[in-house]
């Protein structure tokens, strides 16, 4: 029986949502299907790009959050 995979399956594979059995079949399919292999490589490349595209909030915002937590604690102790 020939198992055919779709691009959706490859997306699930890249995001590690496939079973071990599916992994073996998809890996085998990628070797024999150039188009699917290109899609897979594009996807991996994009995923790496997304992984490194995080944005940093300002230090002022982080300081405000930490200050809120500290003040919460002191307020709680005062009212206790």
């Amino acid at each position: 029986m020939i198992q055919t995979f779709t691009q959706n399956d490859v997306i699930r594979y890249v995001y590690e949502e496939t079973s071990e059995e599916e992994n073996l079949l998809i890996q085998d399919a990628l070797v024999h299907d150039t188009e699917m292999l290109e899609f897979y490589l594009d996807l991996v490349d994009l995923k790496i790009g997304l992984d490194t595209s995080y944005r940093e909030p300002s230090s002022r915002t982080v300081d405000n959050i930490l200050a809120y937590s500290r003040n919460f604690a002191s307020k709680h102790q005062t009212s206790a």
């Binding site: 995080y54 944005r55 940093e56 959050i65």
Partner: peptide
């Protein structure tokens, strides 16, 4: 915890 996840949550 804040410093570990601020970028992920912010993005």
């Amino acid at each position: 915890l804040v410093r570990r996840y601020k970028s992920k949550v912010y993005t």
